[in-house]
Amino acid sequence: MALALVETANALLAPLRAPSDRDWRGAAAEVRAGFQPGDLIVAAPAWADPLLRLHLGDLIPISVAGRLDAARFGRIWEIAQRGAQAPETEGSRVAQASRHGALTLRRYERPASRVSFDFVAGWSDATVLRVTPGGEVSWCSHLPDRFECPGLPAQSVKAELLEIDTSPHLALATQPAGQATTVIEFAHVPLGRELAVGAGLHNVWLRKAGKGTVKLRVLIQGRPWGQIEAGSLSGWTLRRFDTSALAGQSPSVRFEITVDDPNARTLGFAAEARS
C-alpha cells in the first residue's frame, strides 16, 4: 500500500521535476555570457543534447559536434540534470557552477591537447591511391571537395559528417575496394607526443546490410604503427598511438585500408597529431 502511494505520488510529481524551458534559457544565458571561442558545450545525460542545441546550437558548429574526442578542449560547459556527468568532463576541475531549476551548469577546466595536425581538416594535403594485390597502382583524382578513385563513382575519399555508432563524426569517408588497398598518405605531418585515430563504419543501414571487416593500418615513415578493425558491431574505436619518439619531426603518415567483403562498407576515420 505504501508502494502504491509512493508510485502514485511519483506519477503526479515527477513531471514537475523535469527541467523547464525557463531552466534551459537560464543556463543558456549564463553560458552565452561566459562563452569563449574554442569552448565545448555538452549535455548530461547525452539524450538531452537536442534541447541543448535548441538553446545553444549556434555555439556548437558541426566540426565541434562531430569531434574526434574532447581532448583539444580546455574549457567545457556542461548542462546536467539528474546528477549526471558527461564523459567529456571526467577528470576535469570545476571552475564555475550554478543551478537553474532542475539543471546544473558547470564549467570545467583542464589542460587541453594542442593539435599540431588535423587529418580531416587537412584532407587536401593527402595523396590517395589504390594498390592492387599485384602491385598495380592507380591514383585518385584530387577534386575540389574530394578524391575520386577509379572504379565506381561512389568510391571516393571525402571529409564529411558521418553517422558512426549512432553518433556524429566529422571524418574522412571512403568505400574500401574489394581486392585493392586504399592508401591515404600525408607527406609531412608535424607530430607531437601522440597520434589519436578514431574509426568506424558509417550509416546504420549499411552496417546492417554488410558483413565485411575493414582494417585501417597506420604507418609512420613506412613503419607499421598500429591498426584498427571496424565491423558492423565495433562502433567508434579510438586509439592513441605514442609518437613521442618522433615529436617535433614531420614524417609521412600513411593510412592503408583493406576489407574482406566490400559490400555496404563505408569507413570513416579521423586523426589528430597532438602534443
Binding site: P15, P50, R53, I62, L161, P168
Partner: peptide
C-alpha cells in the same frame, strides 16, 4: 546529421519533449 549538413547548423528550431526527454 543530414539536416546539419544540408542546413549548415546543428541547432533545431523546435524540439518536442515529454518530461524533458
Amino acid at each position: 546529421y543530414l539536416h546539419w549538413e544540408a542546413y549548415q547548423t546543428t541547432r533545431p528550431t523546435q524540439v518536442y519533449a515529454h518530461e524533458g526527454v
